[in-house]
Amino acid sequence: MAVIRPHDLLWGLTPRHLPADAPAWVAAALADGQPVVVRRDAAAPGQVAVGVRGSRREQRYATHMPVATISRQVSPEALCHRTGQANWPALQALYRLRPCLDELGWVWGVSGSAGFELASGFGALHADSDLDLIMRTPQPVPRDDARRVLALLEDRVDMQLQTPAGAVALREWAGNSAKVLLKAADGARLVSDPWSLPA
């Protein structure tokens, strides 16, 4: 099995793994065979933090999944060149951006609702959905380079830079603020360098 990272989609969690007080819609989603998405949160050994999504935007449920139960894993970068069954605006934006992002030579992927729908076939997008993208950035990205990437993106496209320390919004890193919000497994904090673990 590949390394499990935030935004990966996992199959194998079933209703019997849920706490007794889990909402009924969570069990229904899992019974339908939907995947869960890996969250950026602490987990006990042998467990991974995941989220279950329902049919409504407010239906999001955080839980943990035994690693031993994972039957399938799909990463955001495995979805870059998939085609959706519906022609939502978010997917149209993805198709337009593909050649530009590929030319950058960096590893990028599709997350959020678009990634969920492309990977699973379960409907998650609607006409007003944004397109969420990630870019793997193990090495620091100069802010000028971030601004060039941002210039490629359309209004309703958001990209997160995945650094060794956590994730930061491309839009923030391309800005002029001295500090940006870094999302890590132990919480979010303002940092000046998203590629260095905060002291």
Rank of each mutant, 00 (worst) to 15 (best):
M1D: 06
M1E: 07
M1C: 04
V3H: 12
I4R: 01
R5A: 14
R5G: 05
H7C: 09
D8R: 02
L9A: 02
L10T: 06
W11D: 01
T14A: 14
T14H: 12
T14L: 13
R16K: 08
D21H: 15
A22W: 05
A22C: 05
W25L: 11
A27G: 15
L30K: 02
A31V: 02
D32A: 14
G33T: 06
Q34A: 13
Q34C: 11
V36K: 00
V36N: 00
V36P: 01
R40E: 13
R40C: 08
A42D: 13
P45L: 12
G51A: 02
V52K: 03
V52Q: 01
R53A: 03
R53W: 05
G54A: 04
G54F: 08
S55E: 12
R56N: 08
A62I: 00
T63G: 00
M65C: 08
S71T: 15
S71E: 13
R72Q: 15
R72I: 06
V74T: 07
S75Y: 04
S75T: 13
E77A: 12
A78Q: 15
L79C: 05
T83H: 13
Q85T: 15
A86G: 11
N87R: 15
N87A: 11
W88E: 05
P89Y: 02
A90D: 08
L94I: 01
L94A: 03
R96G: 03
R98G: 04
R98F: 06
R98P: 07
P99K: 03
P99Y: 05
C100R: 14
E103T: 11
E103Y: 11
W106A: 09
W106E: 10
G109M: 01
S113F: 01
S113I: 12
G115C: 04
G115H: 03
E117R: 00
E117N: 02
E117F: 01
E117Y: 01
A119C: 06
A119K: 08
G121C: 11
G123C: 09
A124S: 14
A124Q: 14
S129T: 10
D130P: 10
D130Q: 06
D130G: 06
L131P: 02
L133K: 00
I134Q: 09
R136Q: 15
T137G: 05
P138C: 10
Q139M: 09
V141Q: 13
P142M: 06
P142E: 05
P142H: 03
R143V: 06
A146L: 06
A146S: 00
V149A: 02
V149I: 15
V157C: 12
V157E: 08
L161Q: 07
L161I: 08
T163V: 09
G166D: 12
A167F: 00
V168R: 10
V168H: 10
V168A: 03
A169Y: 09
E172S: 10
W173D: 08
S177E: 15
K179V: 14
L182H: 00
K183I: 05
G187P: 07
R189G: 02
L190A: 12
V191N: 03
S192V: 13
D193R: 08
P194E: 11
P194T: 11
L197Q: 10
A199M: 09
